[in-house]
Computed example of a mutant assay.
Amino acid sequence: MTPEEVHELVSRWAKELGVYPKRVRFQKMRHKWASASSKGTLTFSVDILELPYEVVEYIVVHELIHIKVGSPRHNRLFRALLSSYIPDWQALQRELISYSSPGGVQE
């Protein structure tokens, strides 16, 4: 996957969710695949570019929902929204966990 493809996913899902991040960036991250700041910046580990499309899509939607709900928490509202947009998110989360942490993605 390319950074441009991730940007396209962000744009498509941002429109679907009605949220518009102020900035999207990529950097080396040691312990996270992605993060959403309270100011609306999405930061993705460069390592997500090695992950399958469906897993990257899950990561994108996950972070956009954090912006939508205005909280870093994974509370009931967060999980309900995630389930409504990505019904199989739990399987995708398990798949993501099967990869090593950012900085050492397993083949």
Rank of each mutant, 00 (worst) to 15 (best):
residue 38 S to Y: 12
residue 92 L to P: 01
residue 14 A to T: 01
residue 27 Q to S: 15
residue 74 H to L: 07
residue 22 K to M: 11
residue 32 K to R: 15
residue 7 H to C: 11
residue 86 I to R: 04
residue 78 F to Q: 11
residue 35 S to F: 06
residue 23 R to N: 15
residue 27 Q to W: 02
residue 77 L to V: 13
residue 45 S to A: 06
residue 65 I to L: 14
residue 36 A to S: 11
residue 13 W to G: 03
residue 24 V to H: 13
residue 59 I to C: 10
residue 64 L to A: 12
residue 102 P to F: 08
residue 98 S to K: 14
residue 34 A to T: 12
residue 13 W to V: 01
residue 2 T to R: 04
residue 74 H to W: 08
residue 85 Y to K: 14
residue 96 L to M: 07
residue 14 A to E: 01
residue 98 S to G: 13
residue 69 V to R: 12
residue 58 Y to N: 03
residue 32 K to C: 07
residue 22 K to W: 08
residue 11 S to C: 09
residue 68 K to D: 00
residue 98 S to E: 08
residue 56 V to S: 06
residue 88 D to L: 08
residue 13 W to Q: 06
residue 7 H to A: 11
residue 56 V to W: 02
residue 60 V to T: 04
residue 36 A to H: 08
residue 29 M to P: 02
residue 10 V to T: 04
residue 66 H to Y: 14
residue 74 H to S: 05
residue 61 V to D: 09
residue 22 K to T: 14
residue 107 E to A: 00
residue 72 P to K: 02
residue 1 M to C: 00
residue 36 A to Y: 04
residue 23 R to I: 12
residue 60 V to S: 03
residue 43 T to D: 05
residue 74 H to D: 01
residue 98 S to N: 13
residue 59 I to M: 09
residue 52 P to N: 06
residue 25 R to N: 13
residue 31 H to S: 14
residue 29 M to S: 02
residue 35 S to Y: 04
residue 7 H to P: 00
residue 97 I to V: 15
residue 96 L to E: 04
residue 80 A to W: 12
residue 5 E to S: 14
residue 11 S to N: 15
residue 103 G to C: 02
residue 87 P to T: 04
residue 105 V to W: 06
residue 86 I to L: 08
residue 8 E to R: 15
residue 104 G to A: 07
residue 64 L to T: 06
residue 6 V to H: 03
residue 27 Q to R: 15
residue 24 V to G: 08
residue 104 G to I: 00
residue 63 E to S: 12
residue 46 V to A: 05
residue 81 L to P: 09
residue 42 L to N: 02
residue 89 W to M: 04
residue 35 S to W: 08
residue 105 V to K: 05
residue 51 L to I: 06
residue 33 W to K: 04
residue 42 L to F: 03
residue 38 S to V: 11
residue 83 S to P: 03
residue 54 E to N: 14
residue 92 L to D: 00
residue 22 K to A: 13
residue 22 K to P: 09
residue 78 F to P: 07
residue 74 H to C: 06
residue 3 P to E: 12
residue 53 Y to M: 10
